[in-house]
Design a protein around this nucleic acid. Structure first.
Lengths: 93, 93, 93, 93
DNA sequence: CCTCAGTGGCATTTCC
DNA sequence: GGAAATGCCACTGAGG
């Protein structure tokens, strides 16, 4: 794991030390917990698409709509960032 | 959205019908809601990695650990499925 | 290089065979040639930004403008793809 | 675009001035032209990798080869620069 | 020097 | 199930 601050040189057989070891285990547990939640939500999304498909909607079109709306949001944010840049730059004239 | 069962030919001005239209909007809303939750959890995971990094752990190795453990779980599940298959086959002899 | 179709078992000392060897060299040469062209163009772009900066323009803003215009193009393409999807789906009703 | 030297305070309606405006448009056009060329070459490279893959070569290994050779070139250049430095220093003795 | 945008590589997912 | 596409992460290099 190469945690310099957590793995000082030591004589004992364990290379990382029980403290660092516990920290690693805690991080792994937290991440795996969150990954599980994320996977569950991904499964939910999949279900929604399946449900829409079951009602006769074209999931390909639906996905595209979602993508375009997401792009819209991103572009709006970029425009705001550009405005910030402009205003900041104007202030420096 | 091209839902054959929901968009019969019609004389009215709206091409898709208000019912299908509402259904589409509902699906989009549900998916976007779930996508947002997923993005939040992804951000949480990122934070955890950042925290671990801040404590001197190598995130690259940490990610590998997570990946390997996930693979192990998958393999274990496959083995169990195979076992089920064998046992079922034996029961049919 | 692990090219199963190009590396039959053979008694000779070379593991890959002269044919596969030549093919690999040709691929590497082609890629490196293209990579070089790409690097040259990247250098040209850098020069243009430098020139703009030299004339008093804010390169950060300029980059943002380029990025937004690129997003616009992408979104336009996505919209066209969506239209294609719609039309194709309508044709199947 | 916030070009102090090109956008003096002015009474006219246009905020940036038609000259600066044209300059900006020219820069954007030049950059977008070059970006397009770069994207085309990147697509070509992708095609070459795909072709190699289609002939049974492992693209992952191929990429590694390209990367290592690039590193070698860089190191060689650094060595030559170092040699130049040494020789120049000797000439000043 | 340090932040940050851009880019390449990798993993996952999706479609066939 | 395998190839193709998308998204994500790490890294390098540019700009301040």
């Amino acid at each position: 794991m190469v945690a310099e601050t957590n793995t000082p040189e030591r004589d004992e057989s364990d290379a990382v030390g029980s403290v660092a070891r516990d920290q690693i285990k805690a991080f792994v547990a937290r991440i795996e917990r969150l990954e599980e939640e994320k996977a569950n939500i991904a499964a939910d999304i999949k279900e929604v698409y399946a449900e829409a498909k079951g009602m006769g909607f074209d999931t390909k079109v639906l996905r595209q709509v979602i993508r375009i709306r997401k792009q819209d949001r991103n572009e709006r944010q970029e425009m705001e960032a550009l405005l910030e840049l402009y205003l900041g730059a104007l202030g420096e004239i």
